[in-house]
Design a protein around this nucleic acid. Structure first.
Lengths: 140, 140, 140, 140
DNA sequence: TTTT
DNA sequence: TTTT
């Protein structure tokens, strides 16, 4: 029975994306995204908590990430949770949970005054980018 | 700047929830949820992939989980991603990613014929349960 | 600047889908979906509210709807909100809001005992169906 | 059987919120939100489509809307779809579909250079606001 | 470890 | 018009 595995994030990139171009011809981009949460604890003190997410973007989205996304940008990411296992340097099995992006939208707008157009702001042509389904992603 | 950290899952419980009643008076339930995905690989073969999610439910949702949820049940879960670190038995820092549930809805319906009411089916009174915000969860 | 327009519904079909095969070769399916909500009013009385949604599914999803979906089935629908205007019989402009489906997943499972396999239950092969992007739906 | 009725929008306010303070003591804010979509039609021409949503925010969220939201701001809205019927001036039954907000997050950040702090930019303290459940909204 |  |  099929299920649903959907993640929706709005946050800021912790670093510029790292993009690798695989021998297969595919590209893959990795970056971290911070989502900030606020709450009051039992004493009424405002507590801030930052959650860091590992984002993975493939193919067309990887190229978009490489071209447009920079550290500090605020983006919307839609994707799915995927936990991979790998062997660490001591040959122990470890797990890492990543968000595989299906859609990325750049948020905010270009500031208008002096000091605008700095490195941390999105280009005017910012928009929504979706992963085009490829042969190994078709739902049937 | 605040962000969004939202997860939506539809899947089946891999085991009955384990519920602990803390000294503080809070309850917490843990269970795994499988979300199944299907796709065709490059050769056209249908490939199935199961993703396992660690679900954590607190307080009222923990009690609901204890009372109503059983291995095999299909549920809708809405929540947020949280990665915790802990020290393993070799005193190494390890990370675990969990989904903290904000809302759980039981899916499917009680079968009508003979053989109904078996252990893997939801009670007739199945419905949606939401986490009531408590003092340590208020957004301001 | 691009935006996000996303709807996630879990509910029951109010009627069998009506499917039209257009001269262009496209198919389109329409059906209604009920989502039920419960709350307690100020006097503590449990109040039930049903929201009816107009669902539209195009092309491959329309054919899936025609083949698999029946009145009473419980499904997950992901899509976008679209408000259309039309002229009513008095030539006045009217508006109708619909959910254009991008993904449909059949929920629940076939009951096992006697009385199973009745008209209102999903086929065993139930799964997730996604709209394949077509030329008039590409994001760029 | 309970259902899910969830809407997620990212867009810009079409006008300043209109806030009414009801005799009951409740407040309600109304505003429109534009979500922009882009696609290529069959001839490959880039087509832009703007969807306008009617947003309704109650109580604490209405006061937040009144205080912080202005025409042109980019926000994230999470809520539910609700279609109301009313009698128009010719005493005919009409329907209007609205999004009742459960959570609003202000997006973008204060621009840093000259010309910053203009009317269309969010305050530095921008954050996430959630509807606190009240007696007539509790899920049980 | 679920489900089909 | 669904479902419980």
């Amino acid at each position: 029975m099929a299920g649903i595995n959907k993640v929706i994030l709005v946050g800021h990139l912790g670093k510029d994306p790292e993009v690798r171009h695989l021998e297969s011809g595919s590209s893959v981009a990795n970056f971290t995204l911070a989502t900030n949460d606020y709450y009051k604890d039992k004493s009424g003190t405002r507590v801030e908590r930052t959650e860091w997410h590992n984002i993975t973007a493939w193919r067309g989205l990887a190229e978009v990430a490489e071209k447009y996304l920079k550290k500090g940008h605020q983006i919307y990411v839609e994707g799915k949770i995927r936990t991979r296992q790998y062997q660490d340097k001591d040959n122990q099995t470890r797990y890492i949970t990543e968000i595989v992006a299906d859609e990325i939208t750049m948020l905010g707008s270009r500031p208008h005054g002096e000091g605008a157009q700095t490195q941390n702001h999105q280009p005017a042509e910012a928009q929504t980018f979706r992963q085009e389904p490829e042969i190994d992603q078709l739902p049937f």
